Amino acid sequence: MALYCPRKIGIWMQVWASFFPKTTLFPDDIWHFISTLRPPSYIPTSSYQLLYQVIGSTLYAIWRARWRVHFDDTPFLVSKVVEQALGP
């Protein structure tokens, strides 16, 4: 739900392009990373820390927005989720 839904994939793509503009995002690679904590082979070792931060902040932003739909009656807006994931 936090990865393969079309709206969520759009969030991942936008956030990914901001931090890793020269690589292509594959949703299966993110799922593999989340489930094993092993970075994709096309990410340079020097970017591992950034990768962990990007994945963590994006997941947090998606789940936070998702739960706000239920508890705060706030609409799930892709642009707001991307903005939160990218940080200040």
Rank of each mutant, 00 (worst) to 15 (best):
P39I: 03
S35N: 09
G10R: 08
T36F: 14
E83D: 11
Q14Y: 05
T24L: 15
G87R: 07
V78P: 00
Y52Q: 06
D29R: 10
S57Y: 03
L77Y: 05
T24Y: 14
S18P: 01
H32F: 15
V54F: 03
P21C: 10
K22D: 12
R64M: 10
L25K: 00
A85D: 00
F19R: 15
S41A: 11
S57K: 14
I9A: 04
S41N: 14
Q53R: 06
P21N: 11
P21E: 05
F33N: 00
Y4W: 10
I9S: 07
V54L: 04
L3P: 09
I62F: 01
P6S: 09
P21D: 03
R68W: 01
M13E: 13
L37Y: 06
P88L: 13
L37Q: 12
P40C: 02
Y60I: 09
K8P: 02
L77V: 12
H32V: 10
W12I: 04
S46F: 08
D73K: 08
T23M: 14
W67T: 15
R38T: 07
D72R: 00
K80M: 08
S35Y: 08
Y4K: 07
S18G: 10
P40I: 08
R7P: 02
T36Q: 13
A2F: 11
L86V: 02
I62S: 02
P88M: 11
D72W: 00
Q84Y: 03
L3K: 01
L77P: 00
H32G: 06
P39Y: 00
E83I: 05
A85V: 01
P40H: 02
P75V: 08
A65C: 01
D28C: 04
Q53L: 05
D29L: 13
L25S: 01
I9G: 02
W16Y: 00
D72E: 09
F26H: 12
D72P: 00
F33Q: 03
S41C: 13
V15L: 10
P21V: 06
S47A: 10
R64H: 14
S79I: 11
H70W: 04
R64Y: 12
Q84M: 10
I62R: 00
F71H: 05
P6C: 04
H70S: 08
G10A: 13
S47V: 02
P88C: 11
H70N: 07
T58S: 07
P40M: 05
F33G: 01
Q49T: 09
L25P: 07
H32R: 15
T74V: 09
W63I: 13
C5R: 14
M13R: 06
T74N: 02
D28F: 07
L50Y: 02
T23K: 12
V81R: 02
P39N: 00
P75S: 04
R66N: 13
